[in-house]
Design a protein around this nucleic acid. Structure first.
Lengths: 151, 151
DNA sequence: TATTGTTATACTCTATAACTATA
DNA sequence: TATAGTTATAGAGTATAACAATA
């Protein structure tokens, strides 16, 4: 006998089929070489996400940055204070709605992201080779779709 | 004109096509309702991962738990001490190699996981409905494949 | 009255190194 | 000499609430 006569009424999925766990494991796999790269630069994962978002979208209010970079506003406040002190971003209050703070990436901040691009693309290239470019694109399509269900 | 005549030499992918960022955003999307569920139970995300892994695999040494649950060994040490004090797991040293500690889920630990199953499966059911069961399975297949590239 | 962002606080995980016990 | 796990420590993110300024 290798299994009970009656399975549990509400069995949980195997952890490899649990989306939260599978996403986390996949992210750890992917982040390994990227963490090695970041260790040689003056920013960490969170600051890199903030710079990537600003570099892509242009100046943004903090609430939008928090959503796009997956950070809570109190965390982002502290991170941006450090980044502003380091000259990576600048902040001005929005003249149209002075509750809002508009954050802009500085040339120094953009330079760090540009410096990462070579190493970053090399890491992705190796991953495409190991995993398959078609599968990688399909995976990114599905992840993008999934994000759209976030209201 | 909507784009510069010559793009940067090493442009970075859009953040929605950056695998680390896309995986993180997808995970945040998925974890929303699961965090609501966990808030009503006596365990947090990390402890739930540990219990899920032990419930699935049976007794394991800590190094294997750390890998499967995406936790560092020092973090796991502290988490398991709390979980043992709460009666969710038990630990014994491996007689075959006394450096190793074998961790086993207790009936109380298994009961917590079983209690989660109904709510957890309901959450996944809603996600299947919003996202599509076929796409979800394809996504899980790809994530499982990606994990295999982790050596 | 609601929203944006800041501050404060307690908790927890991360990351690294040093250490113990065992092999 | 290498490995499994623990301890120590510094740093940082998480989560929540309370608060200020603005709309």
């Amino acid at each position: 006998m290798t299994s009970p006569a009656t399975p549990p009424a509400n069995p949980l999925r195997r952890t490899s089929r649990s989306l939260p766990i599978a996403l986390l494991r996949a992210r750890e796999t992917v982040m390994g070489p990227i963490r090695d790269m970041l260790a040689q630069t003056p920013i960490n994962e969170q600051k890199r996400r903030v710079l990537r978002v600003l570099d892509e979208s242009g100046p943004l209010e903090q609430k939008s940055i928090a959503l796009a970079a997956c950070l809570l506003l109190p965390s982002l406040t502290r991170i941006l204070q450090a980044m502003e002190a380091d000259g990576l971003v600048s902040r001005t209050s929005d003249p149209a709605d002075r509750r809002r703070t508009i954050v802009t990436i500085t040339p120094q901040g953009a330079a760090i992201i540009a410096d990462h691009a070579v190493a970053s693309n090399a890491i992705l290239g190796r991953m495409e080779e190991a995993f398959g470019a078609d599968k990688l694109n399909l995976l990114l399509d599905l992840l993008e779709d999934l994000q759209k269900t976030r209201d």
